[in-house]
Computed example of a mutant assay.
Amino acid sequence: MARQRLKSNLPTKICPVCGFSFTWRKKWAKCWDDVKYCSERCRRHRSSNQQP
């Protein structure tokens, strides 16, 4: 059985909409480079909060 990663060693990103720091999730394993938003709510509100 593979060793588990410590939660403190997981990669993190910062959501451009709310500024929240979020960590890697197993469901994002194949698309982590494409993940930009911490939640569906932030993804839906992305255009209203983006700066020019």
Results as ranks from 00 to 15, higher is better:
1 M>E: 09
49 N>M: 08
23 T>C: 11
26 K>D: 09
32 W>R: 12
32 W>V: 15
39 S>T: 10
45 H>Y: 04
11 P>N: 06
32 W>I: 15
40 E>A: 02
25 R>T: 02
52 P>I: 14
49 N>P: 00
22 F>E: 08
32 W>C: 14
17 V>A: 13
38 C>P: 15
40 E>D: 01
44 R>V: 12
39 S>P: 12
44 R>K: 13
45 H>F: 08
31 C>G: 10
46 R>Q: 12
25 R>F: 01
31 C>V: 15
22 F>P: 07
28 W>K: 02
11 P>D: 04
20 F>G: 02
23 T>I: 09
33 D>W: 04
18 C>P: 10
13 K>S: 04
33 D>H: 15
23 T>L: 06
4 Q>W: 05
28 W>Q: 00
14 I>C: 04
13 K>N: 03
31 C>I: 15
11 P>M: 07
31 C>W: 06
12 T>R: 03
33 D>I: 02
5 R>N: 10
32 W>P: 14
22 F>M: 06
15 C>F: 12
7 K>I: 03
14 I>V: 13
29 A>W: 07
44 R>C: 10
37 Y>S: 06
30 K>R: 06
13 K>C: 02
37 Y>K: 02
28 W>S: 02
45 H>P: 00
7 K>A: 03
3 R>F: 08
51 Q>H: 05
36 K>T: 15
2 A>Y: 11
2 A>H: 12
44 R>W: 11
50 Q>Y: 07
13 K>Q: 08
1 M>P: 05
43 R>L: 08
40 E>V: 00
8 S>R: 14
23 T>A: 14
24 W>N: 01
33 D>S: 14
7 K>W: 03
52 P>F: 14
15 C>E: 10
9 N>F: 04
18 C>F: 13
1 M>L: 09
19 G>P: 11
30 K>Y: 07
1 M>T: 07
